[in-house]
């Protein structure tokens, strides 16, 4: 257990350091351009899973949170000239508030109503942005980028570094939730809500907490987006594709552990980048098919397959140890 934990924290430290150093030693711009998108999806899928995987509430509005984050950052930049980290913080706060709002409205109802409400929130917010001239309305707007800070050569390189930090943050949060009382409470209410409540779990508050954390992370992932693309427009920013992606990554990777969505995101987002020049439509089709396939055949995703394989390989170990190991790993 200690070994696992040590290597985790080593990785958590190494990723941002690499994110800082690698962009400065040359390397083709394209790699950072692609890696940024992959990491962005790692954050989105991880954030999605905090609510979807642990608590069992399906958020169809990943695009809404992502887009709201992007536009919050844009407004903060345009109206107040806020620096990037303030933009991200502002986006996270707005995202948390949206999460709490959607939660308060529907979390007393059955799960499906929460899902529908998140689609609704996405469209309503998108419509507001479409009609808001200050941020360019339907036609979008060019983002005027200030000079690149921290001595990075280009924005792509800087934002790659920023995204490594967000990724590590998201993973640390998800891992903490999974192992702590928060995750235990969320699992309990997902499995049997009234029994959880009668075991002392404040179910509504815990769900709202998960909504807020998940929403904040998704919005934070969207915050660097205006600077990354240097052009922002509502249709693609609020795209339903973000929702499909986050959901399928969590489903394919496995929803029960923090590394499931990470695995799923890396797999799906990197193949998406590879397929981008060939046929993005076909990739979407494969993603959809994979999602349905996994949900039926391997409901625990790659995590489940890995755990199953481990069991097959090491039958010598005692069941107790296995249970302990999977609990702490």
């Amino acid at each position: 257990m200690r070994n696992n934990s040590t290597s985790f924290w080593a990785f958590a430290l190494a990723l941002p350091i690499l994110g800082f150093v690698l962009p400065k030693v040359g390397l083709n711009e394209y790699y950072f351009y692609v890696a940024y998108v992959v990491l962005q999806y790692v954050v989105l899928a991880t954030a999605w899973n905090i609510l979807g995987g642990y608590a069992g509430y399906v958020n169809f509005g990943t695009g809404a949170f992502f887009g709201l984050g992007a536009y919050t950052a844009l407004v903060a930049m345009k109206a107040f000239g806020a620096p990037l980290f303030v933009q991200i913080a502002a986006a996270a706060i707005v995202g948390a508030l949206l999460g709490i709002g959607a939660g308060l409205l529907t979390l007393r109802l059955k799960g499906i109503f929460f899902s529908i409400a998140t689609i609704a929130a996405a469209i309503v917010i998108e419509t507001f942005i479409l009609n808001w001239r200050f941020v360019g309305g339907a036609s979008g707007m060019q983002v005027i980028r200030p000079e690149v800070p921290l001595g990075f050569e280009t924005y792509t390189r800087l934002l790659f570094f920023v995204m490594t930090i967000l990724t590590v943050l998201a993973i640390i949060v998800a891992r903490y939730i999974e192992k702590s009382w928060v995750g235990r409470g969320l699992h309990a209410l997902r499995d049997a809500e009234s029994a959880a409540e009668c075991s002392g779990v404040p179910t509504l508050r815990l769900k709202l907490l998960a909504c807020a954390i998940s929403g904040a992370l998704m919005a934070a992932a969207g915050a660097p987006f205006p600077l990354y693309t240097s052009f922002i427009e509502p249709h693609s920013t609020f795209s339903l594709n973000y929702s499909v992606m986050a959901l399928s990554m969590a489903v394919v990777g496995g929803m029960s552990r923090w590394w499931g969505p990470v695995l799923g995101a890396i797999l799906i987002a990197s193949t998406q980048q590879l397929a981008a020049s060939a046929s993005p439509e076909l990739h979407l089709l494969v993603v959809g098919l994979l999602m349905v396939l996994f949900v039926i055949v391997a409901p625990d995703g790659l995590v489940g397959l890995v755990q199953w394989a481990r069991k097959m390989v090491g039958p010598g170990r005692k069941e107790v140890e296995l249970a302990r190991g999977s609990e702490r790993a």
Partner: peptide
């Protein structure tokens, strides 16, 4: 969750 994901897929 999985039923909803199924129909969404």
């Amino acid at each position: 969750v999985r039923g909803i994901a199924f129909f969404f897929g």
